[in-house]
Design a protein around this nucleic acid. Structure first.
Length: 251
DNA sequence: ACCTATGTTGATAC
DNA sequence: GGTATCAACATAGG
């Protein structure tokens, strides 16, 4: 689930329900999710503090605390944020805060690929895919010999695009995922940026990348919802990729 | 039972 | 430096 729209949902949930509540206790015992911190380190830094702001850039979140360092939270491949829910009986709450009022916030993540870290390093993160300017997008995406899809999923180029959103946006822009990034014209780059913004905004409003127009058809026997051609499947940039060989013909 | 697949990212090798 | 591959985790499905 977690691509930009899901992370934005998590961020707004935290903003609505967790800000302003004083932290009474922290469970940071999962040394894999909280690496490189030792157990108790995050607890020592945040106990007694209050979350005052929830930020996001791409898929990275960080929570500002008064009386403590910022707390970086990444949902990984299967993580989500829950606030004031009963503790997972399956042990999937990998990190949690208990508030003074008795409530809680947790990173619930069965895959355990999420991360929680103090003072997160965001220096290698590109501009947010929903906010990147036209000029920045042209410069950062339209270069190199790598496949276009790999480029837009490169978080240091632009931040927030995952496997599903990439397929959806490329389909909307009618561009081949295998196209060499550096071969793109400015007009094509501008189209792609617009498709990406549209797909991202729609998914955010409608509740996740799964609500995309192409996504439900990414399966054996799936057909292009626009022209009806059989979708093709292959690995591009190391990820399973579905596209319409007619609408998104390689140039 | 065994194999493959899965929304992410980071370390490593060329 | 840019790019490709594999591994980290845990589960679901054929």
């Amino acid at each position: 689930m977690p691509e930009l729209p899901e992370v934005e949902y998590a961020r707004s949930l935290i903003q609505k329900k967790a800000l302003g509540r004083r932290i009474a206790d922290v469970d940071d015992a999962d040394t894999w999710v909280c690496r490189p911190h030792a157990p108790g380190e995050i607890a020592a830094a945040l106990t007694g503090a209050t979350l005052v702001e929830a930020h996001r850039q791409g898929k990275a979140m960080w929570l500002e605390a008064d009386g403590g360092p910022p707390l970086g939270v990444h949902l990984g491949m299967a993580g989500r944020i829950v606030v004031d829910e009963v503790r997972s009986t399956r042990g999937w709450d990998r990190f949690s805060l208990r508030f003074e009022d008795g409530g809680s916030m947790a990173l619930r993540d069965k895959r355990r690929l999420g991360r929680v870290v103090l003072d997160p390093d965001l220096s290698r993160l590109g501009p947010d895919a929903a906010k990147v300017t036209r000029q920045e997008f042209r410069e950062r995406v339209g270069r190199g010999r790598v496949a276009l899809k790999a480029r837009i999923m490169d978080q240091s180029a632009i931040a927030g695009v995952g496997n599903l959103l990439a397929d959806e946006a490329l389909w909307r822009a009618r561009l081949s995922p295998m196209r060499e990034a550096g071969s793109m014209t400015e007009a094509e780059l501008d189209d792609l940026r617009r498709a990406l913004r549209t797909a991202t905004r729609r998914a955010t409003v409608r509740g996740g990348v799964h609500t995309g127009a192409l996504i439900p058809h990414r399966q054996t026997g799936g057909r292009c919802p626009r022209c009806g051609a059989a979708l093709e499947r292959d690995t591009v940039g190391g990820r399973t990729t579905w596209w319409c060989p007619v609408d998104q013909a390689q140039v």
